[in-house]
């Protein structure tokens, strides 16, 4: 299986993630789309790593997952505290910096 098929699939998934971030207004969905984009990048890492015969690609995926886990924990905590203050997580309504 040639590398470019994996890269095309990765590009497609990444783009779907970008479109999701652009068209959805729900902060949680936007957050999920960011995870999708990270995963698309992971796929590219693993595929290229396999092609080059280098384990570094998989190690990077490992690090990406760690960072993603930390990011999700923080992000969801922010969403929860925003929801407590504003009773909404629609990002069009959360556009002021004033608490």
């Amino acid at each position: 299986m040639a590398l470019q098929y994996y890269l095309i699939l990765s590009a497609l998934l990444f783009t779907i993630g970008v479109i999701g971030v652009l068209i959805r207004r729900n902060a949680i969905i936007i957050f999920m789309c960011i995870e999708l984009m990270l995963n698309a990048a992971n796929l590219a890492f693993v595929a290229i790593g396999r092609e080059l015969g280098d384990a570094s690609g998989q190690i990077f995926v490992f690090f990406v997952m760690t960072v993603a886990a930390a990011e999700v924990a923080i992000g969801l905590a922010i969403i929860v505290s925003v929801f407590r203050h504003r009773e909404t997580i629609n990002i069009d309504e959360i556009n002021t910096m004033k608490g």
């Binding site: 470019q4 890269l7 095309i8 990765s10 590009a11 783009t15 970008v18 479109i19 652009l22």
Partner: peptide, 14 residues
Amino acid sequence: VGIILAAEAIYIGI
């Protein structure tokens, strides 16, 4: 924008 981005990414990938 998304479709343009996808086309671009796929082109680069190939």
